[in-house]
Write a protein that binds this DNA or RNA. Structure first.
Lengths: 248, 248
DNA sequence: TAGATTGTTAATCGATTAACAATC
DNA sequence: TAGATTGTTAATCGATTAACAATC
């Protein structure tokens, strides 16, 4: 689901060329998936890829892929497909991945600890530059090469290090206060792992990842499937469904 | 965004009362958020809550909340609001949280280790009952009270322990093989943290959490906001936007 | 009864999809 | 040219929202 409203760019200067494509939220959320698939294809040595091929690799249908890419402009060649390298460059440009963005991580419990060491960040255009925790006994500890600083330094360091994205991995009770400090320090993007709603100004983007919610959604479907098999006309779980790839 | 297609319950037995409400995917994804908000409200001693109040606590607007809840049936009282306890019971029933579901976790690297110790699972209706890894040197290690087993035991144990949900936290290269074993063992719900698309039969639900993708989506918005401030008619990031809560 | 708030309606909006004309 | 595949159109579908009648 989309996680954040964005005021549709109000009143451009008359006649100004829009510096930036106005992409549908659903498209934005899929671009990183296409990018990952393209990187994989590039490693296998492919120079070009058809919408059909890329769509399969990204787990979507080809009409949706072409529609999504058409919002970026016209970077395919009819009869041929898309140039893998060119498309990677285009998507990375739109996603703003041509510049490495500084990330700070707040909260070094179980999850924060794991996030601090997560390879996927560094390998995909992000650099964790600072760690913070409220627990004095953790301050000074070196985690994956970075020292833990006290949360009271967050505001100052966020400005100094030009933090672009703040990741909140604190307990729910502390998350809003951390968000407030981040916002005051000028951070306009927050990734929130705490199970709570954050209140922020409308120019700040928040995305939320809630692991328990993901399980609860799966639980709903388990419940639904169980009730179907129990139903008179219901299809049994083992016979139902054609073998088909997943995604959307 | 929704992550999985669901064949719309085909051909019920004639006249059979549907055992289960057919909820929109977007509604399902919000129910856990409402549930969390309701638990918070319950702890503060509230007996009833209005759609306005609950919506605010869950970060959505009240029309959406009422529409969502109307799909469950009619559990509010006009002029009064919703009974907190009753609504909790209803949502928990629909989400299938009245029965504790057994979860297994595959892949005990950085992230898997953190997930194994994540409180949010146990406290919200799930129980991790087994851990698996391909690395022989990890087998036998006790992590948060559970022994790590070798992945070759996954199929057998998944059946024995009646695993309802498999969580994949392996590297991307191993994820599909793990999914195949889970599916063979009859597991029909998978939460995938590996950055890759899984191919599974259509009766299996997959949800995907990709941390780097979340950052890339935020990066897009950072890029967009930066391009706005550079624009002639653009609003500066610091003056833009009314102070408003986030969500949806 | 008067006030409050739900549940529903209907309009609107955005996303998906199939089909195909454009074009390499 | 013939075959392949994009980019776009238009129809469809699902989700959101404001407004309000129903009703506690």
């Amino acid at each position: 689901m989309s996680q954040q409203r964005h005021g549709s760019t109000p009143g451009h200067g008359a006649g100004a060329v829009p510096a930036f494509p106005d992409l549908p939220e659903a498209t934005i959320a899929r671009l990183p998936e296409y990018l990952r698939a393209l990187h994989n294809l590039g490693e296998t040595g492919a120079d070009t890829v058809s919408s059909e091929g890329l769509a399969a690799a990204a787990g979507v249908n080809s009409a949706k892929l072409r529609k999504d890419l058409s919002h970026l402009g016209s970077y395919g060649t009819r009869g041929v497909g898309y140039d893998v390298t060119l498309l990677i460059e285009q998507i990375e440009y739109v996603l703003g991945l041509d510049q490495r963005r500084a990330v700070c991580l707040v909260g070094l419990g179980n999850l924060g600890h794991a996030l601090a060491g997560y390879d996927g960040f560094a390998s995909r255009g992000f650099k964790i530059v600072a760690l913070f925790d409220a627990d004095e006994s953790k301050v000074g500890e070196i985690i994956h090469g970075l020292p833990v600083r006290h949360i009271s330094d967050l505001g100052r360091v966020a400005v100094e290090e030009k933090i672009a994205i703040g990741v909140i991995a604190t307990p729910a009770g502390a998350a809003q206060a951390v968000a407030d400090v981040l916002v005051d320090a000028g951070v306009t993007s927050i990734l929130n792992f705490a199970p709570c709603v954050l209140s922020v100004p409308s120019n700040v983007d928040v995305r939320k990842v809630d692991l328990a919610i993901e399980l609860q959604i799966l639980s709903f479907h388990e419940h639904r499937k169980a009730s179907l098999t129990a139903l008179p006309g219901g299809r049994s779980a083992t016979t139902a469904g054609d073998q088909e790839a997943v995604g959307s």
